[in-house]
Structures are given as structure tokens and as C-alpha cells.
């Protein structure tokens, strides 16, 4: 890894420097577009007391759910608990601290974190438990709450294709939170399905510029489907 070449060749190198107690932002929606091998590397390393911000926390045996098994996560910032029984159990028992955050607010907190905006006002959550203890301000006769930006010591994300300098292209709804996550990390690690040489991507087609990416690794992915739903011909 040197200059504009962001490529690393091992997952160990990709997650080097991750320490107990750090905050990690993770891309993905459900199991779609998750950095599955970077999560596995965190499991292998055994890093603990992590604060993790991600829309969901995987399922019981996939994605971030794998980090719940060995209680590597101290605090989870997420919008949806849904289909993860272990998450719900640890949350109910108080073992896992959870900050339930509305999905759009979570995305915007990360976007703001990456864009140098310390906070923003939103109507989302006003008058609900989410708004409790937060500053309220009225604009044009409507009440809004102050939400603060979110940044990570590490960001872990998944894209489809990259050039060696970290210019990224995402694929379909695997994009989701990944772009904001990448912008908001002090160290942003991205795993992709394919890496091409600099100059091979059309600049107009790049979804996220490489300036936000610190480390890039090519992986192979299981892409587990949570709800395989089909129609008959």
C-alpha cells in the first residue's frame, strides 16, 4: 500500500490497528452488501468492547451477528433488530447496549460525519423516545430535534468494483449504507469483487471517489439471501 495504490492483500493487513473499545461503522442492509470477510476477520482477531453502527446486526449466524456470539460488541447503533434473536436476547437482558436510531437519521448521521457537518435538525423522532433529551428547535412552525454526526475509528464496507486507487462502483441495492459508511471512517476499509487498474473506470460512472478509501481488498463472497422470494413462471 503506497501512494494512491490502496490495495492490500490480506485481511489481517486490512484490519490492522483495530483495537478493543473502538467504534466501527459497517455497511449493508440486512445481509445485502455487507463486508462479510472483514467481519470474519474481526471475529478471528477477537477484538472486543466494540461500538458498532450498522442498519442491522446481521442474523444469528451471518454478518455482524457473528460478533454477538462471542460478545465482541458492547454497543450497537442500529435501526432494526427484526430477525435476529440473539440481538434481541442480549438487548433485553441488558448485556448489549443498543441505541435504536431511525434508518434515515442513521444514514444522515454517517453522511454528516463524513462531510464535516457536526449535526443536523430533523423532524424524525420528535415526540418519540428517540427525541428524548435532544435539543428541540422550531422552524416554520414545526418541531425538529438535533441529531449529531457519527464517525468511526474504522469503517468496513463492500463495493462491487474498484480501481487500485479506491474509486468505487456499487451494484444494485448492495449500495445502501456503504457510501456513507466509507466517508465517515478515520480508517476506511473496503472489500470488493473486482479490482481493475487505474484508468479503466469511466470517471462518470464512479459512485464514490477513492479519496475516502484507505484500504482495498479483493474478496470472494457468499452473499447469503435472507428472504429468497420467487414467483412462478
Amino acid at each position: 500500500m503506497s501512494g494512491f495504490d490502496k490495495v492490500v492483500t490480506s485481511y489481517e493487513e486490512a484490519m490492522a490497528g483495530l483495537q478493543d473499545g473502538m467504534t466501527v461503522l459497517a455497511g449493508g442492509f440486512g445481509l445485502c452488501g455487507i463486508p462479510e470477510n472483514l467481519i470474519k476477520e474481526i471475529k478471528r482477531k477477537g477484538t472486543t468492547a466494540l461500538t458498532v453502527a450498522s442498519n442491522n446486526c446481521g442474523t444469528d449466524d451471518c454478518g455482524l451477528g457473528m460478533l454477538l456470539v462471542d460478545k465482541q460488541i458492547k454497543k450497537m447503533i442500529a435501526s432494526y433488530v427484526g430477525e435476529n434473536a440473539l440481538f434481541e436476547t442480549q438487548m433485553m437482558s441488558g448485556e448489549l447496549e443498543v441505541e435504536l436510531t431511525p434508518q434515515g437519521t442513521l444514514a444522515e448521521k454517517m453522511r454528516a460525519g463524513g462531510a464535516g457537518i457536526p449535526g443536523f435538525y430533523t423532524a424524525t423522532g420528535y415526540g418519540t423516545p428517540v427525541g428524548e433529551g435532544k435539543e428541540v428547535r422550531e422552524f416554520n412552525g414545526r418541531n425538529y430535534i438535533l441529531e449529531e454526526a457519527l464517525q468511526g475509528d474504522f469503517s468496513i464496507a463492500k463495493a462491487w468494483k474498484a480501481d487500485r486507487s479506491g474509486n468505487l462502483i456499487f451494484r444494485m441495492t448492495a449500495r445502501n449504507f456503504n457510501p456513507m459508511v466509507i466517508t465517515a471512517g478515520k480508517i476506511s476499509v473496503v472489500e470488493v469483487e473486482e479490482i481493475v487498474e487505474v484508468g479503466e473506470l469511466d470517471p462518470d460512472e464512479i459512485h464514490l471517489p477513492g479519496i475516502y478509501v484507505d484500504r482495498l481488498i479483493q474478496g470472494t463472497f457468499e452473499k447469503t439471501i435472507e428472504q429468497r422470494t420467487v414467483r412462478s413462471a
Binding site: 442513521l106 444494485m172 441495492t173 448492495a174 445502501n176 456513507m180 428472504q227 429468497r228 422470494t229 420467487v230
Partner: peptide, 23 residues
């Protein structure tokens, strides 16, 4: 696997569809 809806079900896109980030 890269194309799901908010309920995590696999879906398709209609002509004229567009894709964007959560933000």
C-alpha cells in the same frame, strides 16, 4: 442477492428504475 427490498426479499426492477444510497 444484490437486489432486495426493505423486507430483505429478493425482487426485480421495472424499466426506469434507479438505485441510490440510503442517505
Amino acid at each position: 442477492a444484490d437486489l432486495i427490498n426493505a423486507g430483505k426479499q429478493t425482487v426485480t426492477m421495472v424499466p426506469g428504475a434507479s438505485i441510490f444510497s440510503s442517505a
